[in-house]
Write a protein that binds this DNA or RNA. Structure first.
Length: 252
DNA sequence: ACTCAGGTATTAC
DNA sequence: GTAATACCTGAG
């Protein structure tokens, strides 16, 4: 209760303040150009979804109660794709550093707040001009090659990332995995966080562990996908988020 | 100085 | 196809 979050959403700096069971938005700098109701996934029938998941088993019941305010955001596809490429084999503080490093060096300025200048995430054309070496901002490590390859493929081939929205699940995932540095996990994160594929279920080390420990599903290939699709069904993405955050709260 | 965290591409069966 | 291995670096 009462947590505040400050962050960049496209061309604006926003503050999200918890207010009871709801939230309140404040624009701290710049102007948001996207539909914020869509961004915060307002059209999801939260009460029905949470009720459905809570009734499945005691773990989900606890996890939904713990993370009741969680929203799956509908974020920009390019920003999401590059950010999750950076996330691979990396940890959250370093991922943040790299994303902020790219933004402050190559993104458009938004404005200042509390004495700090904020920048939007760079456009593909801006990153296209950056050398392999200069992409290696703090926290980036060897992933600069993957970012470079992906940005160049998008611009050189004139790929419109919006077209992925029209694809079915399997085609969209295959297309994303065609980028260097994108495997199952990064593809699923991009589908879930940018393309509204709410049945996508990213599996990282934490999720692997909770599938094994809470649901006795082992890492045998294909076992995950079958279990997830049949058990969590159309709400798999939200189930993943609730269980992930609940699991992390337990093991810290 | 040492350890930890952590997906993907590549190589070798 | 499956399994092993290298990759990189900031924080503590």
């Amino acid at each position: 209760m009462g947590n505040d979050y400050v962050g960049v959403v496209d061309s604006a700096l926003l503050k999200v303040a918890e207010r009871g069971g709801d939230y309140e938005l404040e624009v701290l700098a710049g102007q948001p150009h996207m539909d914020l109701a869509y961004y915060f996934d307002e059209h999801m029938p939260f009460e029905a979804m949470k009720e459905t998941l809570s009734l499945k088993d005691p773990w989900l019941e606890k996890a939904v109660a713990y993370g009741k305010g969680i929203r799956l955001l509908n974020q920009d596809p390019f920003e999401t794709l590059i950010s999750y490429i950076i996330s691979s084999n990396n940890n959250i503080p370093k991922i943040k550093m790299a994303v902020e490093g790219l933004s402050s060096a190559f993104g458009d300025p938004i404005g200042t707040y509390a004495g700090k200048m904020y920048h939007a995430f760079p456009k593909p054309e801006a990153l296209y001009k950056v050398s392999l070496e200069d992409l290696k901002v703090k926290g980036m490590g060897y992933r600069n090659k993957a970012v470079y390859e992906t940005v160049h493929k998008i611009v050189d081939e004139g790929i419109c990332l919006e077209k992925i929205r029209q694809m079915d699940d399997e085609e969209a995932k295959g297309f994303l995995k065609g980028f260097y540095g994108v495997g199952d996990k990064v593809a699923d994160c991009t589908l879930l966080f940018a393309y509204e594929k709410k049945n996508a279920f990213p599996v990282d080390t934490w999720v692997k562990r909770l599938l094994r420990e809470l649901y006795q599903v082992e890492d045998a290939n294909k076992a995950y996908a079958a279990f997830v699709a049949s058990y969590f069904t159309e709400y798999a993405g939200y189930a993943q988020q609730y269980l992930f955050y609940y699991m992390r709260s337990l093991k810290r």
